[in-house]
């Protein structure tokens, strides 16, 4: 091996060593804050459990954790829970896709076209000012009491944060980086794919997460208004039959589904956003 090759090897070894684990980009997970944060709810639950068991409280309106767990377990074991989960997830999923696609397309149109911004944006902003639940009676009247009105309501909820997020993100893209692309004569498609999309992706993910969160909120409203299936139906059912354990179990299922859906978006976006983690870790 020549001396030069050896030097080259040493150089790359050095480079690898230098590029090796960067303490600030791979923070060791610290569980202490999480445990600390769990302390209060866990303590409260244990205390309530103890109070009910010792007979100091009846737990009729607020069942102890153990009874909620049993109810949840029964719902899952008997298979009664799954159609409800499926119905609710399906509504949110469909509404999210419809509202999300519409939000992305209108957001892009608004950021590319000043005409769209002047012509359509004021109307959308006006519509946005209406609390979305106020649409419910109209949607019921127009679209009937079945799936269509529910999905439409969810889609409306998802639409606005996505629309605003995408418009803001595209308008906020660093013009200097776009210029770099233009100078290097990237085609319109390459410019969109290699510069605009990565530039707006962080904001787009935030917008989609916000939209999805609203989607879950609106599905409760939609199902509360009348449904024969869905987690929201379990809420209504629990209220009408006086089963607080079922209501709380349904709430927990909502929380879990929301968390899982949110985590799925984050997981999907993470590979494309790795540069950003590194970037922020470096600061």
């Amino acid at each position: 091996m020549t001396a030069e090759a050896t030097a080259g090897l040493e150089n790359s070894a050095l480079a690898i060593a230098a590029a090796g684990p960067r303490p600030w980009s791979l923070p060791r997970p610290d569980w202490r804050p999480l445990l600390l944060g769990l302390g209060l709810p866990v303590a409260a639950a244990l205390a309530w459990e103890a109070l009910v068991r010792s007979g100091l409280a009846t737990g009729r309106l607020l069942p102890p954790p153990s009874r909620i767990a049993v109810t949840l377990w029964k719902l899952a074991r008997t298979g009664e829970l799954w159609p409800h989960v499926g119905a609710t997830s399906g509504r949110v999923g469909l509404g999210f896709v419809l509202g999300g696609v519409a939000g992305i397309l209108s957001g892009l149109a608004a950021s590319y076209s000043p005409l769209f911004r002047r012509l359509v944006d004021p109307t959308l902003q006006g519509l946005r000012a209406i609390p979305s639940l106020a649409w419910v009676p109209l949607f019921l009247l127009w679209l009937g009491i079945f799936e269509t009105s529910k999905v439409a309501l969810i889609a409306v909820g998802v639409f606005f944060p996505v629309y605003l997020g995408v418009m803001g993100a595209v308008l906020g893209v660093d013009r200097k980086l776009v210029e770099v692309g233009r100078i290097h004569r990237l085609s319109g498609l390459d410019l969109a794919r290699r510069i605009l999309l990565p530039a707006i992706l962080p904001a787009l993910v935030v917008a989609l997460r916000t939209g999805l969160g609203l989607g879950w909120m609106f599905v409760v409203a939609a199902e509360y208004m009348g449904a024969s299936e869905g987690i929201g139906y379990l809420l209504v059912d629990g209220q009408q039959l006086g089963k607080p354990d079922q209501i709380i179990a349904a709430i927990l299922v909502f929380a879990l589904l929301g968390k899982v859906a949110d985590a799925a978006i984050v997981a999907l976006a993470t590979p494309a956003l790795r540069w950003q983690d590194a970037y922020q870790g470096g600061r």
Binding site: K176, L177, E179, V180, G181, R182, I183, H184, R185, L186, D190, R194, I195, P198, A199, W275, Q276, Y279
Partner: peptide, 28 residues
């Protein structure tokens, strides 16, 4: 835009989401 003119700015203007090699080869 001129294909045979390139510009070096005061700020390097590297794309933060691409590694060094992909930045250099931006024109593909």
């Amino acid at each position: 835009l001129q294909p045979d003119v390139r510009l070096l700015f005061q700020d390097a203007r590297l794309l933060p989401w691409q590694r060094v090699l992909s930045n250099v080869g931006i024109a593909r």
